[in-house]
């Protein structure tokens, strides 16, 4: 018999019993469906890396790396501390260490957060203006950078984004959540081709993912397509061109969907241009970030272009309701 620590209570798990059966038997509500380790409805997360391998069967590698597991397929071999997927609520203090515009609508915010050393480039944090008011922003930095970087796009009625653009200054203190999300690069499969497609400030997580992959000497081809309505919405263009000039396996294509593109840009939607140039994505790893409709349609298109579902990583930027 082992013990399960969940929400500051302890539950017994009988020999041969799954985590799902043990918790539901004792009155804990855990969502589930197939009870056979397939449908992934009962996904939970362990605080430690002591998850039996069978309980992670079929999960995306980025989820496995964060100790996610399927409760119905998990027969603990030792005591475990578990929580429901994405229920982490620990807050960390951060100080604004840099703030500069990247273009007319996107601000780069640098945050110094000594208690956050360990994260995966491309994950996101929730940034708190006060206790009840937060918004999600992706991490554009890599852990070896001296501070965290966010790309904050000004939204017309965005209470958080307008405050950040107009009032936030170096030295201000605020709180952020622990890093969340599973859209990030994992080493291994160094020869695999990578396709990165982002719109607007969806470039933020892709910058982190790209730099992480390059730092880890990813050997396969890396193609980044960044889309915007007009050229004014593109940013970090020079930095990305320099990276492309420096790394022969990295290719950068800025895309403008409305109006006329300037030299070096393609005209059209980023996802359409990317898939026209790479119609067969068999064996590719695909990262999709930004506008939710773009992410949804690109995910379907990439899958129909024969990318494996477990090789498609997505981060949809759903606008908050004010």
């Amino acid at each position: 018999m082992t013990q399960l620590h969940f929400n500051e209570a302890t539950y017994q798990c009988e020999a041969g019993e799954s985590v799902l059966d043990a918790l539901t038997r004792q009155g804990v509500a855990v969502p589930y469906s197939c009870r056979s380790g397939v449908c992934q409805s009962c996904m939970m997360q362990s605080a430690d890396a002591n998850v039996p391998g069978a309980a992670q069967h079929g999960l995306k590698s980025t989820l496995q790396a964060q100790n996610y597991f399927l409760a119905c397929a998990c027969h603990p071999v030792e005591d475990m501390t578990v929580c429901l997927a994405d229920s982490s609520d620990k807050l960390l203090q951060a100080t604004v260490s840099a703030i500069r515009p990247l273009n007319n609508e996107i601000m780069c915010v640098g945050l110094d957060c000594p208690s956050l050393q360990d994260y995966r480039a491309g994950q996101f944090i929730n940034l708190y203006r006060d206790a009840g008011f937060s918004r999600s922003y992706s991490l554009a930095s890599v852990p070896s950078d001296s501070y965290l970087r966010l790309h904050v796009r000004r939204l017309p009625d965005g209470r958080m984004s307008n405050w950040i653009h107009d009032e936030l200054k170096i030295g201000d203190n605020l709180y952020i959540s622990a890093p969340l999300g599973s859209c990030f690069y994992l080493p291994g499969a160094e020869e695999q081709a990578l396709l990165l497609i982002g719109t607007g400030s969806g470039l933020a997580p892709l910058m982190g993912i790209l730099r992480d992959a390059l730092n880890r000497q990813h050997a396969g081809e890396i193609h980044l397509y960044h889309g915007s309505r007009d050229t004014a919405g593109l940013y970090l263009v020079e930095e990305l061109r320099e990276l492309a000039a420096h790394y022969s396996n990295f290719h950068y294509t800025p895309c403008v969907s409305g109006g006329t593109a300037t030299t070096g840009c393609q005209t059209g939607r980023a996802v359409d241009i990317a898939l026209a140039e790479h119609p067969d994505l068999t064996g590719w790893r695909v990262f999709l970030c930004g506008n939710p409709n773009m992410v949804k349609s690109a995910r379907k298109k990439a899958y129909l272009a024969r990318a494996a579902m477990n090789d498609i990583y997505a981060d949809a930027f759903v606008a908050a309701v004010n």
């Binding site: 469906s33 197939c34 056979s36 397939v38 379907k300 579902m309 498609i312």
Partner: peptide, 14 residues
């Protein structure tokens, strides 16, 4: 959600 749906398709096929 396509990813959840794909997992459910796998359960259905099984």
């Amino acid at each position: 959600d396509m990813e959840r749906q794909a997992a459910k398709q796998k359960a259905f096929l099984t």
